[in-house]
């Protein structure tokens, strides 16, 4: 079960079509229907199963609990309809992968374009960084959700130190060679 593309689709539609409204921070019935909709597992024609991480629903929940977000029935219906449509596109594409990068470029571009178009009315933008294979969903200038691993890397990375030390070692060796050669020349 997984991930990238399904998350992109679901969270995108979820966040893009939310309508700013009066304060309400609880999850109402319509919002719950949307959360249920993003939790589905899609099976492509080739038999590949795709779904969100189980916990990705919490990313959506955190967004829906914001004071300024309150979905009514019509909006929720529209979101759910679009979620289903997006999943249909993925099914048709026959993705057998969990990585967004493995999607055909044309399909990916079309999907991202559609995503940004859908998000534009409420200021949601979707940015995909191929180098990091990460998708960020931004609302009102802030990241509201990301497509990335659940458990992060939280260790020290000394690779830059090793690179510098390696370069220094090479430099010292070079110095030694130069000194030795000049000594011989003498």
């Amino acid at each position: 079960m997984k991930k990238g593309m399904a998350i992109l689709l679901a969270v995108l539609m979820l966040s893009a079509l939310c309508v700013p409204a009066m304060a309400a921070s609880d999850i109402n019935e319509d919002e719950q229907r949307v959360l249920d909709a993003v939790s589905v597992v899609v099976t492509s024609e080739e038999g590949a199963e795709m779904s969100l991480y189980e916990s990705d629903v919490n990313q959506a929940k955190n967004f829906l609990m914001r004071d300024e977000i309150d979905l009514d029935k019509a909006t929720a219906d529209e979101i759910i309809e679009n979620i289903e449509e997006c999943f249909a596109i993925v099914e048709k594409a026959g993705l057998e992968t969990e990585k967004l990068t493995d999607m055909a470029e044309a399909d990916r571009k079309a999907l991202l374009a559609a995503a940004n178009e859908a998000g534009a009315p409420v200021g949601v933008t979707v940015a995909y960084d191929a180098a990091r294979n990460k998708v960020d969903f931004t609302y009102d200038g802030a990241v509201i959700a990301s497509v990335d691993p659940v458990i992060k890397f939280t260790g020290a990375d000394y690779s830059m130190l090793f690179v510098v030390m390696g370069a220094a070692v090479l430099a010292v060796i070079a110095m030694a060679v130069v000194v030795k050669k000049t000594a011989r020349a003498k």
Binding site: A171, M175, A176, V178, V179, K181, K186
Partner: peptide
């Protein structure tokens, strides 16, 4: 020699600190 002197300076000011 001048060349040897440069080599020593390089070693002293760059190589040794490294």
């Amino acid at each position: 020699s001048k060349r040897h002197s440069i080599g020593k300076k390089v070693a002293a000011y760059v190589g040794m600190p490294l």
